[in-house]
Design a protein around this nucleic acid. Structure first.
Lengths: 326, 326
DNA sequence: CTGAAAGCGCTTACAG
DNA sequence: CTGAAAGCGCTTACAG
């Protein structure tokens, strides 16, 4: 049998109201009474039912998180940052993905309507941005972890894509490279445009191939560039998977990295230190982005003001041997 | 204002009881009445409050999941398998980690006491196995994803560690290798003992170095073996991180993989296809383990019998160039 | 400082 | 087939 607040009240010889008061602090309770109640609580091992508290208070102390996929290389870092922050605040994290398409989205939308959580953290809602925006407009607190330069109409956490691109260029320039081959993700992503613009602030770049954020794109882009006889002394990849593909094609073609061609990636996923050679890359602080977004959402739930402007966290160039300092 | 069951009842001209009945099917309701109620529900966009339903029913339709860390290479796959299965059954997934030590464990335990979820999925509870076992004994349905050969006292999903070890040995033997250097994780892990035993069923192995499941262990083990002048023609690593470290040390020492030394890993994490050369490894079906464990837990919650014996899913040898077929 | 009572939004015997 | 009422386990005005 579950121990309830009524059991505690009875054994402590007070009303449920009083027990509730010592549970939730705030209200004034006689110190002696409070101590007695606390003793009974401890003795009985009483813990309030989160469901009942939620119903009575009209909030669940749960945060929802919606991600497109959980298997992306950097998703674990984001999740860990979120979970740590959310747990430390006494909240729970309810996890959703769009992995099963319309079914997933339907399930998720139902949970929103059912008030299963108080606020929402969202990553990369490529096909659901409108849905999310509508939910936000109807009053659901939302914070987005914006890895794609979406710039939503609600609070978000982003990273310095432009400065990151510039830092890659500056590093390459400092090590004597001047003829970059840039391999990007899809052009309609804000992050792609920003990284490219930042890069070009420092170094001209005419050889640009746009594709997907995949190893295949990196591989075929380099093959294509070599086949065309393009002249480049470094490859600037818009993520580490593209960079890994580039490394592979360069090696297959007998080009030595970094002697013949330097390679720089973006993200710093765990794999980056295990490529051959290890990858110089622009690190995105995914964990801190998760922590920051969760913190902003918690603040919003506490009634604190939250900036509508994106909160932008700095990238950091991590130098490894694929593009050494020179 | 939130739409409640009372609103639906009023507008449909029936009692809340009847609305509840059409919501939950099962009970007999006049077809016409049911249709009318359904129309009102659709018109109002009514969705039952999950909190209220949970309180009334005494269950939350939420599954808890406890993991030591979310950043492990294969955790994303497990999570994805779990989330997909849980969502498809109309359940939610509440995520916890032990990442912040005692604090995390405390928060988690409180949620258990608060009945925040109906059943628990757990991965690798190295320091919490006793706690979990106690929770299970007190009536909490628990299923473990057993990646370490723990063999708990409650239902679990494991993989064929022994057969996996044997398959690595058989593959190496078939390609002419006979002098293995085995680098393992901690000896007190069941999976380590089983993988080693399976390997030795097929091929004798005297050169065994035990360490952690890390790249450092792989690196230093190979360095040590080379320094001692040990004679080996293949490295059998108990996970892919160890294998990656071994590859690095071999290359640094001028040994060519696979010509001089073949290397086999275990797990098949995403990184495995990006090492140089790409890694032959014994694949653990982490996603299917997640799906299976979630399915078992859902079955248990539905009242179906669940095997106490571990459910064992097969490993699969993935052949890449670090240990080609020959 | 304390308590009785109503209410949160549902489900479920019970009675008809 | 249908409904009134009690109950799930809390919180929160309201009154004292």
């Amino acid at each position: 049998m579950r121990v309830t607040i009524a059991d505690v009240a009875r054994q402590a010889g007070v009303s449920k109201t009083t027990v509730s008061r010592v549970l939730n602090a705030g209200a004034e309770v006689d110190a002696g009474t409070a101590a007695r109640v606390r003793e009974v609580i401890a003795g009985l091992g009483y813990v309030p039912s989160s469901g009942a508290v939620g119903l009575a208070r009209g909030s669940s102390r749960i945060i929802g998180m919606l991600t497109p996929s959980l298997t992306w290389p950097w998703m674990g870092e984001v999740l860990q940052g979120v979970v740590d922050t959310v747990e430390a605040a006494g909240y729970g994290l309810l996890l959703f993905t769009c992995n099963r398409g319309a079914d997933s989205v339907g399930h998720f939308a139902a949970q929103v309507s059912a008030r299963a959580f108080d606020g929402l953290l969202v990553v990369e809602p490529e096909n659901t941005l409108d849905t999310i925006t509508a939910m936000h407009r109807r009053g659901l607190p939302v914070v987005m972890i914006d890895d794609r330069g979406h710039h939503p109409l609600f609070p978000s956490v982003a990273t310095t894509n432009r400065a990151g691109g510039a830092s890659a260029a500056a590093h390459l320039l400092a090590s004597g490279r001047t003829r970059p081959l840039v391999v990007t993700g899809r052009r309609d992503f804000g992050c792609v445009r920003e990284r490219l613009a930042g890069f070009r602030e420092v170094m001209p770049a005419d050889l640009v191939i746009a594709g997907e954020f995949t190893e295949d794109t990196g591989r075929s882009a380099v093959e294509q560039a070599l086949a065309q006889g393009w002249d480049f002394d470094c490859v600037v990849a818009h993520n580490d998977l593209i960079a890994a593909g580039a490394l592979r094609s360069l090696r297959a073609a007998g080009r030595v990295v970094p002697d013949d061609v330097a390679v720089v990636g973006f993200d710093d996923i765990p794999m980056a230190r295990h490529t051959e050679p290890p990858l110089t890359t622009v690190r995105q602080p995914m964990r801190r982005m998760g922590e920051t977004a969760a913190g902003m959402l918690l603040a919003a739930l506490a009634g604190d003001p939250v900036p509508v402007e994106p909160v932008v966290l700095p990238t950091e160039l991590v130098v490894r041997s694929s593009a050494p300092a020179r």
